[in-house]
């Protein structure tokens, strides 16, 4: 148990580095105060935990199914592309009053958005299942465990350790009185999406070439 937590503490900055480009635009885009930002962070981390636990189960059940480089590249490339699509959706369509998406909003998009879980949860989940180096370490650690609960426990404690580093981020809510920041956050989500889309497509192409 302690092993997962220590691994989380040791890798937290790297996790933060991988998550910040998604989390910061989302927190700005929501435009909430500090307290509400902690709720959003909770949703994000909840989504991330779900992603981690899903992998813990996979790690235990099928004994490291993504061992081949090409499989990894393909799967995580697809996750990146999905993440990019959700970020675009978040930046341009999923809004209450303020953003560029207003110009292009259409009814099917509204119907789609009504069926979705909260966006921070979705982003947390997709970040949780994305292959960052510390995550891989935890994955390897969990794959060694015999019982499913041990595997889950490693991921859970790893999650707790890394989550500590996320605690200061909701403080951006101190600037929520600037409406402009909300628009900036939404547009930044789209810019980040372009980056993930590129990274995803390159990973998929790499995976296809290798396989």
């Amino acid at each position: 148990m302690l092993q997962g937590f220590i691994l989380g503490i040791a890798s937290g900055t790297a996790c933060l580095a991988y998550c910040a480009p998604v989390l910061v635009p989302v927190l700005l885009g929501e435009g909430k105060n500090i307290q509400r930002n902690y709720v959003i962070l909770g949703q994000y981390l909840g989504g991330r935990l779900c992603g981690y636990l899903l992998f813990a189960l996979l790690a235990w059940a099928v004994r490291f199914p993504l061992s081949g480089l090409q499989d990894r590249e393909l799967v995580f490339g697809v996750v990146y592309v999905v993440l990019a699509l959700f970020l675009v959706y978040y930046g341009l369509f999923n809004h209450r009053a303020l953003c560029a998406g207003q110009i292009i909003e259409q009814r099917p998009i509204k119907r789609f958005s009504n069926r979705l879980p909260p966006m921070p949860l979705v982003f947390g989940f997709l970040s949780g299942v994305t292959l960052c180096p510390p995550f891989l370490l935890a994955f390897t650690e969990a794959a060694d465990k015999v019982a499913v609960w041990q595997s889950l426990l490693v991921f859970f404690t790893f999650f707790l350790g890394t989550s500590l580093y996320f605690l200061p981020i909701p403080l951006v809510g101190a600037f929520n009185r600037f409406d402009a920041l909300q628009k900036v956050g939404k547009l930044a989500a789209v810019v980040v999406a372009v980056y993930y889309l590129y990274a995803g497509l390159i990973k998929i192409a790499g995976g296809v070439i290798v396989s």
Partner: peptide, 9 residues
């Protein structure tokens, strides 16, 4: 606001 979004990212 796009320059700010590009800057942030």
């Amino acid at each position: 606001y796009l320059p700010w979004a590009v800057l942030l990212t």
